[in-house]
Write a protein that binds this DNA or RNA. Structure first.
Lengths: 215, 215
DNA sequence: AGACTGCTGTTACCGCTAGTAACCAGCACG
DNA sequence: CGTGCTGGTTACTAGCGGTAACAGCAGTCT
């Protein structure tokens, strides 16, 4: 029976692939996203062409490497989005989950968010602006948009508004988190509370400062 | 009198620098951010070492190139922030100004936001996570934080909350804008309204969807 | 047994990049 | 005349992503 045989092959190949990914991860976490293919191959105890056979090109390797982490992070966020409590509790839990993740493994975060896209990758048409931006950011935005669309009644244009909000909220979380991670100006809890306050419309109701021209 | 002489020199050098920047801009807008130094030099009608004499290295050139656009964009946003009307009008005007800018010149936007950071730039310590993220994003966040801090009365911790909000709002604008620019799912006006609604606390008051577990 | 196939692995190369050392021409000054 | 200074060049290095061509070693078919 050759299916067993083929399955052995397949699992063997996949295990190899997994090993290579682990080596790549070690190097990327040590040297940053600009790790060279040579360095990764050396860490895995082999040479470049094997990497290329497994992953096609560098962006393929990086995509494979990123997928595992993005999947894990998205699952964590999804769980937080389903946590008990009222809506505000859930939003705060989600913000906490995201910030805790990037705080716990900043190197992974940096790799996922600032992938130093290899320049040789385009080659075809004369730049399509969006290209993909940061894939993780897009995926998080889409996912959150889905959740919002399915849970909130936003009237006509609901699906569209939900997607806008999904990307908007994710971007808010991203930029604030990036800044916070670099400067650490306050506790995680304080950051979460400030952001939730913002989402809860405090911007709309807070008073103008005395003597200011208004905002 | 040699000061006149030296001033001539200085202005001559600066004019040259300006010419080089213009050439670089032409190439970057044509070929995208991964334009090579060779290509830029050729466009300027000279060869590489001169570029290096003027700008040190590639990131120096790109920083010089970026500064002009970021300054212009920030001035535009600042003006929108000072536009007449109530607070919501001003927020919508600012969102409009940003989105109009990235819509009008997407190549410039792409260059500023996805600068394909040259890998050789680090070299020192083993990755400082924040490094800088996207400089423009940071600057916009800081600027908006300043405006918020000086115009709104946010109580104790006001300055801190203002900065959090500055970065958060900018990130919201960024991610939503990036997504919108790529997919064009709606008019600019609709996007602005949805985002302003979000900032105005609609997330807090909207009803759960019938049959959903709540959000 | 022997040929064939498929996988792992290698060496050696290509074309490109950022960046630099060394040199050359012209022009002002003493 | 020489002595700088300044804008410019050629020719190079080191390293990158990526690939072609070849070598060894399983198992499989005839």
């Amino acid at each position: 029976m050759d299916t067993g045989q083929r399955e052995d092959q397949r699992t063997a190949s996949e295990r190899r692939r997994h090993e290579l990914l682990e080596a790549a991860e070690r190097v990327v976490l040590r040297d940053g996203p600009e790790a060279s293919m040579n360095a990764i191959a050396a860490e895995a105890g082999i040479t470049k062409p094997i990497l290329y056979r497994h992953f096609g090109d560098k962006s393929g390797l990086y995509r494979a490497l990123a997928r595992r982490h993005t999947d894990a992070l998205l699952a964590t966020l999804r769980a937080a989005l389903d946590s008990p409590g009222d809506r505000r509790d859930r939003v705060e839990a989600t913000l906490h989950a995201y910030l805790a993740a990037i705080e716990a493994r900043p190197q992974v975060y940096r790799f996922l968010m600032h992938p130093a896209e290899t320049p040789a990758a385009d080659g075809e048409k004369g730049f399509d602006v969006g290209r993909q931006s940061i894939p993780l950011l897009r995926r998080m935005g889409e996912d959150l948009g889905d959740v919002i669309a399915e849970r909130l009644d936003l009237g006509p244009d609901g699906p569209l508004v939900a997607r806008v909000w999904g990307h908007g909220i994710v971007g808010m979380m991203y930029a604030a988190g990036d800044w916070w991670l670099g400067e650490r100006p306050c506790s995680r809890d304080a950051l979460v509370r400030s952001l939730a306050d913002l989402l809860w419309g405090r911007l709309a109701v807070v008073e103008d400062r005395a003597g200011s021209q208004g905002f």
